[in-house]
Design a protein around this nucleic acid. Structure first.
Lengths: 211, 211
DNA sequence: GTCTATAACGGGATAGAC
DNA sequence: GTCTATCCCGTTATAGAC
């Protein structure tokens, strides 16, 4: 029963963390929602913080793994163009988002929350997860967009990360349809149409500083 | 001393909320950091939640006020083009971001946090603040981009909001320069170059659904 | 391996003196 | 308007029975 109890805790905790935040969720809520004893979290994970780390790794890990795999495939034959590199970057996000959403509609927000939480813990986990991926993609984007300064390229890539994080946040203005539909391919196409344009926009002129 | 004590509490609390989140900040932290008595929050604001609402209003209110004013000015003579409307939309963000940053480097993150917190409270405050602004800008963007479907227009505008929220979050990859420099005009120019391109990208084709 | 019970502590809020 | 003292509750974590 050990494995099942652990799983029940993880499934309950990730939803609660997504809805209420890490600090806003108590072990009582988690264990009650999971239908396990209140002592089970500390028995199986050692502490509330270790539970969060496990959940973070489970969510972020697959994104990076698929990103690197898609980039490998795109680079197998020749230098991929910007659409191919962006697809390798974005598609894993949409897959994970879809998987999270299918488990619980509020679950994707968990990822967005990680980005606006500044704690030492988040920086550590996210940094460890994203280090390799970042270097690989910076190089790939640089090859696909040789005319762009690397600084501007990184800046625009950050804009795209902002858009993706916002998708995960699932912010929905009243009366507006959700930003993502049920079809992953359609979502990707729409996202590519703006992000490809964004990355290939002409390099802006330096603004002259007044005297 | 009443007014000063209230101010001291607000200034201390907004920084702590930005750094640790609402749930992650205790009244003891706030009052200690403000150098006031622990009972002062409940005396001046009634509750911790009312304190948050006051801080939220103070941050979000000026953004909307300036947005509407700039839009009024842009619409005074004739129908403004997309750059003018986007400037009215984005410049107030950069102003507030700059003002927050000058008070404390971690303060802008407070705004980003509001977007990823899903609580009933956030939805209520943000909804009340943004309702009028949203309607006015949807119309203005529609006039500036008549060839775009209103649904696609709203979708892209959401992408821009995502970028702006990410700017407020101040996420900074290791070894990368911050996304915003000290000069507001330069920041605006850079932001406009990608957002104008994003909004004026050709309308994507509908993805045909396979049988 | 899982439970109950409880320890040890910190949380928000308030009563009442000054 | 500001303080001290305290209430009452929920928090994480653990000890020990089963």
């Amino acid at each position: 029963m050990a494995a099942e109890t652990k799983e029940r805790i993880v499934r309950a905790a990730e939803i609660l963390f997504a809805k209420e935040g890490y600090a806003g969720t108590s072990l009582r809520q988690i264990t009650e929602s999971a239908g396990v004893n209140i002592a089970a979290v500390n028995y199986h994970f050692g502490s509330k913080e270790n539970l969060l780390i496990e959940i973070l790794d489970r969510v972020v890990g697959p994104i990076n793994a698929e990103r690197l795999q898609l980039l490998d495939e795109a680079q197998a034959e020749d230098t991929p163009d910007i659409t191919a590199v962006l697809t390798a970057f974005l598609l894993p996000d949409l897959h994970v988002l879809d998987e999270l959403r299918s488990r619980d509609p509020s679950l994707p927000r968990f990822v967005a929350r990680m980005y606006s939480e500044d704690s030492e813990l988040m920086t550590r986990v996210m940094g460890r997860q994203f280090a390799e991926t970042q270097a690989r993609f910076y190089t790939a984007f640089g090859s696909a967009l040789p005319e762009l300064s690397s600084e501007e390229m990184a800046w625009r890539l950050n804009c795209i990360v902002g858009i993706v994080v916002y998708l995960f946040a699932g912010v929905q203005a009243p009366g507006m349809p959700p930003m993502l539909g049920p079809d992953v391919d359609a979502n990707l196409a729409r996202l590519l149409s703006v992000t490809v344009t964004l990355m290939t926009a002409p390099q802006p002129l330096e603004v002259s500083t007044p005297i």
